[in-house]
Amino acid sequence: MDAWSNLVDTFLNWGYIAEVLPTMFAYGLQNTIVLALTSGVIGTLLGTLLALMGISRNRFVRVLARIYTDVFRGLPAVLVILVIGLGFGPLLRELAGITNPYPLAVAAMALMAGAYIGEIFRSGIQSVDKGQLEASRALGFGYGPSMRLIVVPLGIRRVLPALMNQFIALIKESSLVFTLGLTATQRELFQIGQDFAANNGNQSPLVAAAIFYLVLTIPLTYLVNYIDKRLREGGKQKAEPDEAAAVIGKGAHA
């Protein structure tokens, strides 16, 4: 059973896990969250813009959004992060004196997330029944205000679960910033696990990183399911029988 205990030790050496935990709590967790959250927020704004462009009545604007989406959805994440992070790094250093790779990593992640989120929002907006637009316009709202006040909010609510999935993807994708080279305090969960694992010839620190990721992502997936269920059922109370009979004849006189 030597092989078996070796295997257990490779992945579940509690000593190594305990050793890596303080660093993960000190830097890794917050760095991962910062990367995912900022790129998520920027990606959502970008996605909203792309979705609105995608449903524009102007063909040129629609094509522009299409091209953007096709490009950034079609490339591997690691390639985009490397190309943008390394490619624009010198420029950023020269112009703003910034050597931290985070801004460019966040930019790369946000650019990709924007493409996905744009498609999510667009499909949501386009799935809204056209009667909603008609009703709003019939009340006297113009096309723009009808879209802004009724159709777009309705469409976005409908795709909140898909949006949450995108945030989960960003949490995982943030691990790729290691390709840009990080200083000790810039390291996120994966890089910390990776460093400890390499130094000790043992995979347990990576298992610790895995647990951190799961602690972040699993509750989010359950939140997604909850929101999804909630949106579909609308916290629905049972519909009451119509008491129309009671007001017949009263109707508009009441």
Binding site: D129, G131, Q132, L139, F141, G142, L154
Partner: peptide, 20 residues
């Protein structure tokens, strides 16, 4: 046309109430 539609109320077959 927006002004006009404020002066004419419309009721639809499918109600089209705002669900949210």
């Amino acid at each position: 046309p927006d002004e006009l539609r404020r002066r004419i109320g419309m009721v639809f077959q499918q109600f089209n109430l705002f669900p949210h």
